[in-house]
Simulated assay, not measured.
Amino acid sequence: MGKPLEPLKVGIVGAGNIIAAYLETFPKLDAVRLVAVADLDRSRADAIADAHPGVRSLSVDELMADDEVELVLNLTIPAAHAQVALQAIAAGKQVYGEKPLAANTEQASAVLEAAKEAGVTIACAPDTVLGTGTQTARRAIDDGLIGTPISATATMMTPGHERWHPNPDFYYVPGGGPLLDMGPYYISALITLLGPVASVIGAASHTRASRTIGSGTRQGESIPVSTDTHVTGVLVHESGALSTLVMSFDAVATQAANIEIHGETGSLIVPDPNRFDGDVKLRTLASTEWETLPVSAGYVDASRGIGLQDLAMSGTDAAPRASATLAFHALEVMESVLRSAHTGQAVTVESTCERPRAVPLTELTVPV
């Protein structure tokens, strides 16, 4: 696998808040180049193009028809992910999208099928798992430092996004909630570390019928809650390992590690999967203290968009590590946890995926 002869030319659809993080990353990437941007609000696309020489402002239809654009970076709202991906696939373009792959697995299935028929590559965030934090933990597991993995815990506890988000309504309706909002980071990390999931058992609740917005022009306004705000699940991995997942917008705080992995001979503390870096700590049967492991794998100093570089570098030799099949599997796991919570029965996860290839320790080369 080598660097492509020419950078993969990227057009962005969607110029909302998340685009800023990607624009900061592009200068670090030598295998991709941003050439165009489109948004339903043309003024936002114009502002990006004006600030970035060589980037053109286009309408969505113009971007899809543009021969220079080889890959569409889909940064639209989740409800539009499938529609934009299908439009790009129909135009013969590769797609990299923000999480989730689609609003639900039915829409995501249509995207996967269309990509297969068209023979184009699609990939999906989160790409945080490609950074040194999760990948160093993955290396420790693969090197046998904890023996055979037995279990994991994954914990995300917050008092709710309405405390800081000026328009938090979508977090508290079906399709929102802590699991679908933050679950992709945690579940993608668990699959990267322990492999795909075979079945799940879930339970869920919500403690308040309304939330009060804490900032912005709507501060003090009450909004209704119509989705679960505390979700617990047990994920049974195909390997036999068991992961316990707790995602909450109802808690105040926690001192629990974001992710812990436990094996026969040792335990790992894994850093926040919403970050690319962080310390990995190991304690074994032979030790009495936690040891911080040296960084040993992953893209160094990575940030949002490193998945585009990984896709471009993979070429035709292998699937991108942030693959659409991984994103689909993670989405089905989340839907299955919620279905189990509502039915009171264990749910078999029908899909599977390959455990993504490990990322060797890789320094990014900033283009000259």
Rank of each mutant, 00 (worst) to 15 (best):
L86W: 05
L293Q: 09
W290K: 04
D66N: 11
Q345S: 14
V37R: 02
I18H: 10
V270G: 03
G233A: 15
A302S: 03
T284I: 01
Y171M: 13
R339G: 08
L40E: 12
G202A: 09
E98D: 14
L179C: 10
V225P: 02
Q219S: 15
E332H: 09
P168Q: 09
P184S: 05
V349Y: 03
T292K: 12
T76W: 10
R357G: 14
A241D: 04
S222V: 10
T25P: 01
A36S: 05
D301P: 01
R304Q: 11
L193P: 08
L193Q: 01
K116N: 12
S215C: 13
V72H: 01
S59T: 15
M334T: 01
A341N: 05
G97F: 02
F249Q: 07
C124Y: 09
E260M: 14
S243C: 05
M64G: 04
L190T: 03
A319F: 06
T153M: 07
L40R: 14
N17P: 00
L245G: 01
T207E: 15
V347Y: 02
K99T: 03
Y185W: 12
A80M: 12
A318M: 13
A253Q: 00
T158V: 12
I306T: 12
A51K: 14
F276V: 09
G315D: 09
D50V: 05
Q87I: 03
D143H: 07
A241L: 08
L63W: 06
E289Y: 11
F276G: 04
A65F: 08
A346S: 15
P273W: 08
V13G: 04
S336P: 09
P367D: 06
P100H: 13
G54E: 10
I187Q: 01
Q345C: 10
A251P: 04
A38W: 03
I89N: 08
P166S: 00
T292H: 06
G16R: 02
L293M: 10
A203D: 14
D277M: 05
R42A: 13
A297D: 06
T362D: 03
G176P: 07
Y299R: 02
G202M: 11
K116G: 15
T128Y: 08
T229R: 11
E363K: 12
Y22L: 12
A108K: 09
A318E: 13
Y172I: 11
V37L: 03
P174N: 00
T227N: 05
L130V: 06
V120M: 05
E238G: 10
V270C: 05
G315A: 13
L145K: 14
G278M: 07
A118S: 14
D41Y: 11
T128H: 13
T136M: 03
G220N: 08
A209F: 11
S43Y: 04
V120E: 00
T76I: 11
V69W: 06
V35D: 00
H161P: 12
I306K: 09
A318K: 13
R44P: 02
M334Y: 04
Q135G: 06
G298T: 06
T229L: 14
K281P: 00
R321H: 02
Q83P: 00
P4T: 05
